[in-house]
Write a protein that binds this DNA or RNA. Structure first.
Lengths: 195, 195
DNA sequence: ATTACATATGAGAAGCATCTCATATGAGAA
DNA sequence: TTCTCATATGAGATGCTTCTCATATGTAAT
């Protein structure tokens, strides 16, 4: 947690520090990111940094927290009645929106997720839980086969849309097309029915 | 490429260096791995290291190369006539075999792949190409719906089995069960058919 | 004006990294 | 034996990092 001294700073100075940190943490992963660069870019003296934050991790967690707040505001609430399949598409669209409005958040997110496997695990688990709930609900609604392993479905699609975004998300049309393709495959399967 | 001096070394000494490097590179990613640790563990003097290798990367590439050779020998050849679905299962079994026989290779592989996104991209592309070929062949065999996007299928399953292994591969039965579940879903889809 | 206190400042301590280089060693050839 | 040359060796050069601390500054209260 940043110290009081940090919160007492002018908005302008806080923003300078935030921007410098986002810039650095979206370019290099946590362990490679250099406080040197950050204090230089933020134009604050070395000593001041430690008046504001306990250490590098303190700053990092603050940044992640702020970004998370900002992202929720940008994406807005999901439609709670959307089917699992619709939810996937909505989520992909939300990801694209963030990527467009705050590309640096996307880069930082990608670095965070590949850097800290424990963090990634938590993120995966949390997302998975949400998806599983929606799948279970749709099973009750009679929209999804009840014998299916919800965990597997959730992971297949979540990991797919995540990876596909990292590696082709810059091409929005293509990305949405691929996600829709994946949803179709989930829905219908790929085997030729011989019955 | 290691220097001649390295190849002239006794097998015992080469193995000592190999083992020390695998140990370090399977514990910390490339940029965090410490040559200090490696020369200490391998019991070679600092100066000698630079008689054998040009730099850290030189050693690293050598290790990856050796591991790759060793792994191919362990897994052996795939059955070329197996269906796409069977190939997936075989691949998962191969991964488990490596994880059992050379757990340190798996750890090193995981670190490499998350460390170097360019390397990961290459790996993904190469694997994807192979899967796509098999899928296309099975389309011609009349086993897979021809209108399906092969690229999406390949990625969905490949990324799934990869991630699932990283996060639950230690429980072999569970892992194979999940992979089989994923294959079933791919085959049949998850939507309740209303026709 | 004086005191008190929060904040600002940057030089440098301390630690760790990779890599170099001058010198030592030891085995085979002349 | 003496010379040659590949190899061995480790101290330390150099450069990066995070983080500390003694001192300066500015602001508000007395």
């Amino acid at each position: 947690m940043p110290k009081d001294t940090f919160y007492n700073l002018s908005e302008e100075k806080k923003k300078r520090i935030f921007d410098a940190a986002v810039q650095e943490f979206s370019t290099r992963r946590f362990s490679d990111a250099s406080l040197n660069q950050i204090v230089k870019a933020a134009k604050i003296p070395w000593g001041s940094f430690y008046q504001y934050f306990n250490d590098k991790e303190d700053l990092y967690l603050y940044i992640v927290e702020e970004i998370s707040k900002d992202m929720h505001q940008i994406i807005g609430a999901f439609n709670p009645n959307a089917s699992f399949f619709e939810t996937i598409i909505q989520r992909a669209e939300g990801t694209l929106k963030i990527g467009k409005m705050r590309p640096e958040y996307t880069r930082l997110g990608a670095l965070t997720v590949i850097d800290n496997s424990e963090f990634m695990l938590q993120l995966l688990r949390a997302s998975n839980e949400k998806y599983i709930e929606i799948i279970e609900r749709d099973k009750k609604r009679g929209m999804i086969k009840p014998e299916i392993d919800s965990d597997v479905v959730a992971k297949m699609i979540y990991i797919f849309i995540f990876n596909e975004y990292l590696y082709s998300g810059f091409d929005e049309a293509r990305y949405l097309n691929k996600v829709e393709g994946a949803v179709q495959i989930l829905k219908q399967g790929i085997a030729v029915h011989q019955d």
